[in-house]
């Protein structure tokens, strides 16, 4: 009886010390969190953010030629593409490329279905907005140079 009493106390104390060893080790090791927004995580190669258009390296214009494959493949129907030929070009170029991110399930089917690999995943994970509407019509063209802008401004000048 008395031995089991003593044994229990010694065993309990031992396990408490073991626990304290775990926490002090954790305290002395590196922290895992970063000081957002001053620091950003480096994301893994294959991180899937929202989709974005891939530019042609030399011009900065979108690779996309507005075939509409992605929009047709998307199971949630959240891509809207419209395009036309810029002056003197052989292929079309997108004039509208909208993503309804409120519906997108990040399945990646659009990325796979694109014949010229014009879509990729962005690494932007810090997205927030005061309203759901902020993400209903994300303009994916806005971050790229456009083959139309010079033409459009020309037209404006003439008009």
């Amino acid at each position: 009886m008395i031995t089991s009493y003593v044994h229990e106390i010694v065993r309990g104390t031992g396990s408490l010390l073991a626990g304290m060893k775990v926490t002090i080790k954790a305290m002395l090791s590196r922290t895992q969190t970063v000081q957002w927004p001053r620091q950003y995580l480096t994301l893994p190669q294959r991180f899937r953010g929202h989709i974005q258009l891939v530019p042609v390296e030399s011009t900065g214009y979108p690779k996309c030629f507005a075939c509409g494959n992605c929009a047709r493949t998307c199971p949630s129907k959240c891509i809207t593409v419209k395009g036309k030929k810029p002056e003197g070009a052989k292929k079309k170029s997108p004039t509208t490329f909208l993503l309804d991110f409120t519906k997108c399930s990040l399945c990646g089917l659009c990325v796979e279905s694109c014949p010229v690999s014009a879509l990729g995943f962005s690494k932007d994970y810090a997205m927030a907005g005061p309203s759901r509407q902020d993400f209903a019509e994300m303009d994916l063209l806005s971050s790229l140079a456009s083959p139309f802008s010079t033409q459009a401004s020309k037209e404006k000048d003439h008009g």
């Binding site: 954790a26 305290m27 002395l28 590196r30 922290t31 895992q32 969190t33 000081q35």
Partner: peptide, 13 residues
């Protein structure tokens, strides 16, 4: 601070 570091966080910064 201790609580943070023991949970791999920074604590107040």
């Amino acid at each position: 601070k201790t609580a943070g570091r023991m949970q791999f966080r920074h604590g107040p910064m």
